[in-house]
Computed example of a mutant assay.
Amino acid sequence: MYRAAAVLVLLNFIGACASAPSSPSSGPAFSSLALCSGVSISNAPATDGARRIVGYDPQATVKGATLWRAPVEACVSSGYGPRRGGAGSFHHGVDLYTGRPAPIFAGGDGVVAAVESLRGYGKTVLIRHGRGVETRYAHLSAYAPGLKRGKRISMGEYIGRTGDTGNATAVHLHYEILVDGRHHNPLTVGQR
């Protein structure tokens, strides 16, 4: 049931949003991702005139693991890398703003390595995809029922809802891709 919902959400993705909840505007399908409107993002990736991320591919292949770059219907409110203000000077993931709690889906096939609350991150999920590849999901408001360490998970399976736990200032997903323990930009990792 949740896998089907994930596919519907992703196929109906709207590529723009505001810094505060507002009515969605029509936009491109899931094949694109945009910066949130009305927000200045100091570490924003390159965009076109409609604030869509240039060269965005919704999937990445990292050491043989196929991963989604944005496993939630959202817009980008903070990119990867150095940033001014906010929660620290270097941002180790990408923030995907949803405005209100929204479903989060596993970014790839794997095994749940942790379901826990971490300082700063709030409620988190860590999934191991094999060959040293992991994805971390932070600031969740709720976990999927039955989600626990050791559970095998499929790409697109419902894992929780976005939130503002930890050091978050708005409802969003902080999403990280780690390879051999090192952070990589979810929006560009695996690009040739």
Rank of each mutant, 00 (worst) to 15 (best):
Y97P: 15
H91D: 03
F90S: 10
P101T: 02
P45Q: 09
A65T: 08
R52K: 01
C75Y: 12
A87Q: 09
C75I: 14
G86V: 14
R3G: 02
L173P: 01
L33G: 04
K123P: 09
S19D: 15
A168M: 06
I53F: 08
H183R: 00
A5R: 05
K63M: 01
I159M: 01
N185K: 02
S78N: 12
A16M: 08
Y121G: 11
T162M: 10
A4F: 03
A106S: 15
V72W: 08
L118S: 04
G27N: 11
V171F: 01
G85D: 14
G38M: 15
S25G: 09
T162D: 01
R161K: 05
A168Y: 03
Y175N: 10
S42L: 14
F13D: 05
S154Y: 08
Y143D: 11
L33F: 04
I41W: 10
A20D: 13
A16C: 12
I177W: 04
A6T: 03
I104A: 14
L118V: 05
W68A: 12
T135C: 03
A18T: 15
G120R: 03
L67K: 13
Q191W: 01
D57T: 11
V94C: 12
S37I: 13
K148Q: 05
S31D: 05
G130P: 13
V94P: 10
K151N: 10
V7K: 12
S89D: 07
P24T: 06
R136S: 05
D95S: 04
G163T: 00
T162K: 04
A144R: 02
S89L: 06
H129C: 09
A102K: 01
L11K: 11
F90R: 04
N43M: 04
R128V: 10
S78M: 12
R51E: 14
Y143Q: 07
A170P: 14
R51A: 15
G160A: 03
G150R: 03
A44F: 15
E176R: 02
S37K: 10
R3V: 13
R84A: 13
L96A: 05
A18N: 14
P82N: 07
Y158S: 09
R192C: 06
Y143P: 11
R182K: 00
G55V: 00
R83H: 14
V111A: 01
A142I: 04
Q59L: 08
Y56P: 02
P103N: 07
C36S: 13
H183M: 00
T124K: 08
L11A: 09
G190V: 02
M1T: 02
Y143L: 05
T188F: 01
R149L: 02
L178V: 02
P58V: 13
